[in-house]
């Protein structure tokens, strides 16, 4: 029985991990290439979730909803980059933090004006409703498996994009030496816009997929953004591979912490209420403890991309 629970929690951890990966990949690319810290990355996640929820409600089709949410998130991302953030690439990180903090306030309020302040609950698409038995006797929700599959597919596609295509080559070149790339005649501004749009698209995808399992609400972007920061710190800034490993690690630690720590602590403490209290505190902090440990061992993350 414990083994089944363990298996189930491991799949949950993977599901959280791939969501975090979708967020972290975009954020780490934008940082690695434009040297830009973007707090508003969570806003693209929120926009993806809201647009998908809205379109899904209108059309009744999950696929149309996702198909609309992705380009909307990407277009919003590229528009924001062109209008405001482009001017900040050469500025101090502090200026970037402030300007993108302003963007968060703007997008949160805009969302609240358009869709209202209440959380929206999106039904699981009928095609993926219900559960399958992954091994006999252990049912698991189909939709969560779909998320894991989608996330892994994106990871493979991203790898192909970066290793095999011309755009990917430019992205890699831009990450290692920006000045040289632009000196060689590459339209660096357009490359930046494309990378930013790609990051926003991935965040929008994460948001659209999260809709049916989490509440779609104002501020959902910031919650996942901070987890994403932890992923990037653990994985190493600028590294896609680091983002994937970091995301899975954070997913595992968080999920196992919440699932098993309280039970474990019950064995340690005599008073079960104390054990539950400590368990709740420690498990909510577990990923930050992971981050602190990584910081002590490797201050620049597990997979340092450059520098």
């Amino acid at each position: 029985m414990t083994f089944f629970l363990f298996l189930e929690q491991t799949l949950n951890a993977f599901q959280l991990g791939v969501m975090l990966f979708l967020m972290a990949a975009g954020l780490t690319l934008v940082f690695g290439i434009m040297n830009m810290i973007n707090l508003a990355h969570g806003s693209f996640y929120m926009i993806g979730a809201y647009v998908a929820a809205y379109v899904g409600h209108l059309t009744g089709s999950f696929f149309i909803a996702v198909a609309v949410a992705l380009p909307v998130a990407a277009i919003v991302g590229m528009a924001v980059e062109t209008i405001a953030l482009r001017k900040l690439y050469n500025r101090d990180h502090l200026d970037q933090v402030l300007a993108t903090f302003g963007l968060i306030l703007f997008f949160n309020e805009l969302t609240s004006i358009i869709w209202g302040p209440q959380a929206i609950f999106v039904p699981i698409p009928p095609l993926f409703a219900g559960s399958v038995e992954i091994i006999p006797g252990v049912p698991y929700p189909v939709y969560r498996l779909v998320i894991i599959a989608a996330g892994l597919a994106v990871a493979v596609l991203l790898r192909l994009l970066i290793v095999k295509t011309r755009t990917g080559m430019l992205i890699r070149a831009g990450a290692s030496n920006r000045e040289m790339v632009s000196a060689l005649g590459v339209d660096i501004d357009r490359l930046y816009t494309v990378v930013f749009g790609l990051g926003a698209l991935l965040a929008g995808l994460a948001g659209a997929l999260a809709g049916p399992i989490l509440a779609t609400e104002i501020g959902m972007g910031e919650n996942i953004l901070i987890l994403t920061f932890v992923v990037i710190i653990v994985g190493g800034i600028g590294s896609i591979r680091g983002a994937l490993i970091g995301a899975l690690l954070v997913g595992l630690v968080d999920t196992y912490g919440r699932a098993f720590l309280p039970t474990l602590l019950r064995a340690l403490f005599e008073d079960p209420s104390v054990a539950d209290g400590v368990g709740a505190s420690v498990s909510s902090m577990s990923i930050y403890i992971l981050m602190a440990v990584v910081l002590v061992i490797r201050p620049r993350g597990l997979f340092q991309a450059y520098g």
Partner: peptide
């Protein structure tokens, strides 16, 4: 812990530790 790093890492790490304390007090 945070001062082992600098720059953009420092921004994210201080943010993450603050969030950790936030969740700690939420769980009390």
């Amino acid at each position: 812990l945070s001062l082992r790093t600098s720059g953009v890492y420092f921004i994210m790490i201080t943010l993450a530790f603050a969030q950790m304390l936030y969740f700690f007090f939420v769980s009390l």
